[in-house]
Design a binder for these strands. Structure first.
Length: 664
RNA sequence: GAGCGAGUAGCUCAAUCGGAUAGAGCACGAGCCUUCUAAGCUCGGGGUUGCAGGUUCGAUCCCUGCCUCGCUCACCA
């Protein structure tokens, strides 16, 4: 509701500005006065106009206030000038509160298909906490965009790119076939044995991958030969149609299924799993290469260090005489294409710009509400969707890939696909690292130099990190202990559900509370906390509201119905009324926060809002004891306050992918 | 060396487009459970926003220089 008022207010001001001063401002800042006593909204426009109009800010503000007062926008009670020239706006509290109670709110959404890609873990080891940040960010953003009961939203597709033919998979295959002497049959047997013992292939590969990575360089006299083996294995996997490739596919698919399982524990689901094997076999690159040459972004280098390669000018690079030594190699002199080259082809496909190429689609994994498809080089299963027609894309990829991501955008731009390049968002985020203390706690040896650092980067190659499922298990176990202590009366299954909800809530919130370009220095002490700025804090506030309704023998809907008939005269004024009103005001901001989170690709804003809302509600909860309230009008008002606060806290958490438990 | 990011309370982080007194959590100290569950609330100490200049009505935010830290910069993916 806040956003509706804000929009109508801004529209009015824009029209006044153009009518009276013949000025139009792109963005009008709207702030909050330092105290509710000064009003609900504050506009510093007069300062901005002072120079252009050559007038004192206060004089301008006074004129604007007069104009506005002549015809007040919806929900506005009064406008006044304050301070050096602020335009402070007071809202019609009764009217706003009524609208909030009946859940009137601005809509969010628009045209166009938005393709979000996240997770994209190499299918050669278990997911770790860094992958969790990626998946949780992507999944939360997807929820903000998608159509749901609350908003029109956008048409959204969620992809998880699977690099099933890369060196990381090759490394694990080398480990299986050369360190462990396995062939195709015994690899199959391994998978069967693990399944039988209830052990996990992704954990198995975690250790194996670390082992192989060491092995390559362990014996200097063998190093060249082993490097060679690694490359030969990679090439066999890329070509396909041999046992090595089959081993790779078995392992990659099995690990992928584990990843889907891990993510499903966190309510993270996908619509499509495009794989690199299909990008190779369907020859996406050949089509892209053709197009890039036609458009003049790809050229053959005939001199300098890149002689014999097909190269592309770097983003920000300038045309130079002779060899551009700084150019990015796209096709090596041996004719193979680099990572960035394949990525350009893939992104042309995303925008529907790759002529004559599309993935085949096969059913892979069925979720409760939809199918997850996987790419295939053969014919598609009936009823398949198509994803390669995005109007906007969001790639959730960590900031270490800023450079290659920029190259891909540069290629699109260079090819003249300007609007596509503009609607290409590298949803960049910083890594999750371990604090030295955490690393020591996990039993890793940490060099003295590393111990002095604020954090240490995780490394799959070294097997250094915290596995996603291990962390989640620890969180759920910790939550379970609390639930058991508090609710010994509840059934086993119910306690398990609540513990899971709390564990997931703590984890998802933890990954979302930091803005994207903050490195998370992971520490169990912080991550395992259920107090303060955490997911469980918000969940607990929701449970409190639910307890009130249960004890009062009523329900939120009924409380709001009763509220509709209530005489609001005086109850929203004064010191006491202010605190109640402030709760409603904060409650009304949800759409604004969703909109801001989308515009800035920053889910942390919404996470923070959810916490603030819970904080505000807890404050209200302690100040006004609802069930003891003897004044009937106040009691009705308080119950309605709890109802709307609970409603928006549940919604906000929902967008963060966090469930609200029945009890805690 | 170049590019990108960061430096804010003891610690971990916020701070909308440049706005009114830089805010939260943790930790610490003092209170609050016969109460709608204390996974909570209230109060308190805590800040030269890395340093030095500049821009302006106003700078944590923009500009210049410097210092410190991290990431990136392969015919790897």
């Amino acid at each position: 509701m806040y956003r509706i008022v804000q929009q109508s207010l801004l529209a009015r001001i824009q029209s006044i500005l153009s009518a009276r001063y013949e000025i139009s401002l792109e963005n009008l800042a709207v702030e909050q006065p330092p105290s509710i006593a000064l009003g609900e909204l504050a506009l510093p426009i007069a300062f901005e106009l002072a120079k252009r109009l050559r007038k004192a800010p206060r004089a301008i503000a006074t004129e604007l206030a007069e104009e506005l007062s002549g015809q007040l926008p919806e929900g506005v009670a009064s406008v006044e000038v304050a301070g050096a020239g602020y335009l402070n706006v007071r809202l019609d509290r009764g009217r706003i509160v009524r609208e909030i109670a009946r859940d009137r709110h601005a809509d969010i959404g628009g045209e166009g298909f938005r393709l979000i890609e996240h997770t994209s873990i190499n299918p050669n080891k278990a997911a770790h906490i860094g992958h969790l940040r990626n998946a949780i960010l992507g999944d939360t953003f997807q929820r903000l965009l998608r159509k749901d009961d609350y908003k029109s939203g956008y048409e959204v597709g969620v992809q998880n790119y699977i690099d099933n033919t890369g060196v990381q998979v090759a490394d694990v295959v080398v480990g299986l076939m050369h360190l462990e002497g396995k062939d195709l049959a015994s690899t199959r047997q391994l998978l069967a044995d693990l399944a039988e013992r209830g052990e996990r292939i992704d954990y198995y590969c975690w250790d194996l991958y670390a082992h192989v990575s060491q092995w390559y360089t362990a014996d200097e006299s063998q190093a060249t030969e082993r490097k060679h083996l690694r490359l030969a294995t990679l090439h066999a996997i890329e070509s396909g149609g041999n046992d090595i490739a089959k081993v790779a596919d078995l392992i990659a698919t099995a690990v992928l299924r584990r990843h889907l399982g891990t993510m499903q524990r966190l309510s993270i689901e996908y619509d499509f799993l495009p794989r690199e094997s299909e990008i190779l076999h369907l020859e996406f690159w050949d089509a892209a290469r053709q197009l890039m040459i036609e458009k003049g972004v790809l050229y053959f280098e005939t001199e300098g260090k890149n002689k014999g390669c097909w190269v592309m000018r770097r983003a920000g690079g300038e045309a130079v005489e002779g060899a551009d030594e700084d150019a990015k190699v796209i096709v090596r002199s041996n004719g193979t294409v680099t990572y960035v080259g394949k990525d350009i082809a893939y992104h042309l496909w995303k925008f529907g710009l790759l002529p004559g190429r599309d993935f085949g689609y096969r059913r892979f994994h069925e979720y409760a509400t939809h199918m997850c498809w996987i790419s295939t080089a053969s014919t598609s299963d009936p009823g398949h969707p198509a994803f390669g027609h995005a109007d906007a894309i969001y790639n959730v990829i960590d900031s270490r890939q800023n450079d290659p991501q920029t190259q891909v955008v540069q290629a699109l731009r260079g090819m003249g696909f300007i609007s596509e390049a503009d609607r290409y968002t590298h949803f960049s985020y910083e890594m999750v690292a371990l604090t030295p203390r955490c690393a020591l706690e996990l039993g890793y040896t940490v060099s003295e130099e590393d111990q002095k650092r604020a954090y240490i980067e995780v490394s799959g190659r070294k097997g250094f990190g915290v596995k996603a499922d291990d962390l989640l298990d620890r969180l759920i176990t910790a939550a379970r202990a609390e639930v058991d202590a508090r609710h010994p009366d509840l059934a086993e299954g119910e306690r398990e559900t609540i513990a899971r909800q709390i564990g997931v809530g703590a984890l998802r919130y933890f990954m979302l509370r930091f803005t994207r370009n903050t490195v998370i220095a992971f520490d169990f002490r912080d991550a395992l906390s259920f107090e303060g700025e955490t997911g469980p804090y918000v969940q607990y506030a929701i449970v409190r509201a639910a307890n009130i309704f249960r004890k009062a023998g009523t329900m939120a809907a009924a409380s709001l119905a009763a509220f509709a008939e209530l005489d609001l005269e005086g109850v929203l004024e004064g010191e006491e009324g202010n605190t109640v009103w402030e709760t409603w005001l904060l409650v009304s901001r949800l759409t604004l926060l969703i909109e801001q989170s989308i515009a800035t690709s920053e889910p942390a804003y919404l996470a923070r809002y959810a916490f603030q809302l819970a904080q505000q509600f807890n404050n209200f909860y302690h100040r006004h004891h609802i069930l003891n309230e003897t004044d009937a009008r106040r009691r009705t008002l308080y119950l309605a306050t709890a109802a709307v606060a609970q409603r928006e806290m549940i919604r906000a958490l929902g967008y963060l992918g966090i469930e609200a438990p029945e009890r805690m």
